[in-house]
């Protein structure tokens, strides 16, 4: 195993982790501020990818597609919040799960009706095609750009929450919802904005990842469930926890898939080693989650109480 290959896989893990962070950040914000579990977050990821792919094909520009995907996901998020989610804040978690599960069915079939049953393809923009030399390895320029975008969004999100008036309201909403409403903040508007912000992040992740995977119905839910693992590990409601959890999950999952079959190959025959290694690698992050639950039941960075 060469150092170059190892470094490449490590970067893939970081890139995967940062895209998971975009998903997890929205989920954890929505939970932190509104106390809502949103299963349909994966559908917003899917909407971002589909609109981006369709718009990129129509306008011939990835960047216009990306903007369209982001805007569509944010708009869909705001619309969902105004029509459905708003009625769920006072309900128990079971009702939230069911209503957002119903939204998944509606949005998945809706996307299938609009875009047809076949996957769409979104190609990497010309500007970011090819590879760059990083010294120890050559690495895909597009994936490197994803890492850069992920970091930039994380910093932007931190600035938004730490430095702006909206951020103060979000943090206040996380610690005491009734109180900030009593202080005259328009809480309904704040909820819609936070939900749309989370939706935009999910849509962005979907559009960006859409260029390296196929864009298809059902693409959102596996990522959603991984984002759940991320926030269970990181501590629900915590942006910092989402970042740490996302990087842990991204790197451990990618490296596990890369290393475990090779480790087992040392004492099993190759075909068997591939099977055992792959099966175990697919379970690794859930075992990590179990470990965190045993040691820190409220996650690594508990945000509440």
């Amino acid at each position: 195993m060469s150092v170059a290959l190892f470094a490449e896989q490590l970067l893939n893990g970081v890139q995967f982790g940062l895209m998971l962070f975009l998903m997890a950040a929205g989920l954890t914000l929505v939970f932190g501020v509104m106390g809502l579990i949103n299963l349909a977050h994966g559908s917003l990821y899917m909407i971002g990818a589909f609109v981006c792919a369709a718009a990129a094909a129509a306008f011939g520009s990835f960047w216009l597609g990306l903007i369209a995907g982001l805007a569509a996901a944010a708009a869909a998020g705001a619309l969902i919040e105004l029509t459905v989610i708003r009625r769920l804040y006072d309900r128990d978690h079971l009702d939230q799960v069911l209503a957002t599960f119903a939204l998944i069915l509606i949005l998945s079939e809706g996307v299938r009706m609009i875009f047809g049953p076949f996957p769409l393809y979104l190609s990497v923009p010309d500007l970011l095609r090819g590879t760059v030399d990083l010294g120890i390895t050559r690495y895909s320029l597009y994936r490197l750009a994803l890492i850069g975008i992920g970091i930039a969004v994380a910093i932007g999100l931190w600035l938004l929450i730490a430095k702006t008036r909206l951020g103060i309201q979000i943090r206040a909403g996380e610690s005491d919802r009734e109180m900030i409403a009593a202080l005259g903040v328009n809480i309904r508007w704040l909820y819609t904005v936070v939900f749309a912000l989370g939706a935009a992040l999910a849509g962005m992740a979907g559009a960006l990842v859409g260029a390296i995977q196929s864009v298809q119905v059902g693409m959102g839910e596996p990522v959603l469930i991984l984002a759940f693992v991320v926030i269970v590990i990181g501590g629900i409601g915590s942006i910092k926890g989402a970042m740490v959890g996302a990087l842990l999950v991204g790197v451990i999952d990618t490296m596990g898939r890369f290393l475990l079959p090779r480790i087992f190959a040392a004492f099993l025959d190759p075909a068997q080693a591939m099977g055992v290694g792959a099966a175990l690698a697919s379970m690794l992050i859930y075992l990590l989650m179990a470990l965190v639950l045993i040691l820190r039941p409220r996650g690594l960075f508990p945000a509440h109480g």
């Binding site: 459905v84 009702d95 069911l98 209503a99 599960f101 119903a102 939204l103 998944i104 069915l105 509606i106 998945s108 079939e109 809706g110 009706m113």
Partner: peptide, 12 residues
């Protein structure tokens, strides 16, 4: 499934 989703949403 689209209609199942609508009905489920209505029930909830």
């Amino acid at each position: 499934q689209f209609f199942l989703g609508l009905i489920l949403l209505g029930v909830v």
